[in-house]
């Protein structure tokens, strides 16, 4: 299909979004990511039954934490799509990048970073 998606995104592959941990999301923000999103399977179609549902709850937890810290919770999102939806994948990537650009760079600055 030769669909393109923005180069701003670094994809980290996991066997299932059930493996996503609150700490993965928090650490990404802590290390200066402007946004993080989890792309899980469609709800009801998880091979491990509820991995994607658990991931959504973890995303919600992190959103709450960010809000408590005065950081836009929209920087962390959960999306559901199937592996056959290439176009949807590209669309989500563009959507997320547009949103983050609108929000601007992360307020979490790595002051000691070289």
């Amino acid at each position: 299909m030769r669909l393109s998606y923005p180069a701003d995104i670094k994809v980290i592959q996991l066997p299932c979004t059930g493996r996503v941990d609150i700490l993965h999301l928090l650490n990404a923000i802590e290390d200066g990511a402007d946004g993080v999103y989890v792309a899980g399977c469609l709800e009801g179609e998880c091979h491990y039954i509820e991995g994607n549902l658990k991931a959504r709850k973890k995303v919600e937890y992190v959103k709450k934490t960010l809000a408590e810290l005065g950081i836009e919770p929209e920087r962390v999102e959960m999306y559901n799509l199937s592996s056959a939806q290439g176009a949807r994948f590209a669309q989500i990537a563009n959507e997320m990048v547009d949103k983050i650009k609108e929000l601007g760079p992360t307020p979490v600055k790595n002051n000691h970073a070289a």
Binding site: L26, N27, L69, V108
Partner: peptide, 16 residues
């Protein structure tokens, strides 16, 4: 989780 949350907050303040 608390350690990461606190670090995020303090980085945001520019006070690691």
């Amino acid at each position: 989780i608390l350690a990461s949350s606190l670090k995020i907050a303090r980085k945001k303040q520019g006070n690691d």
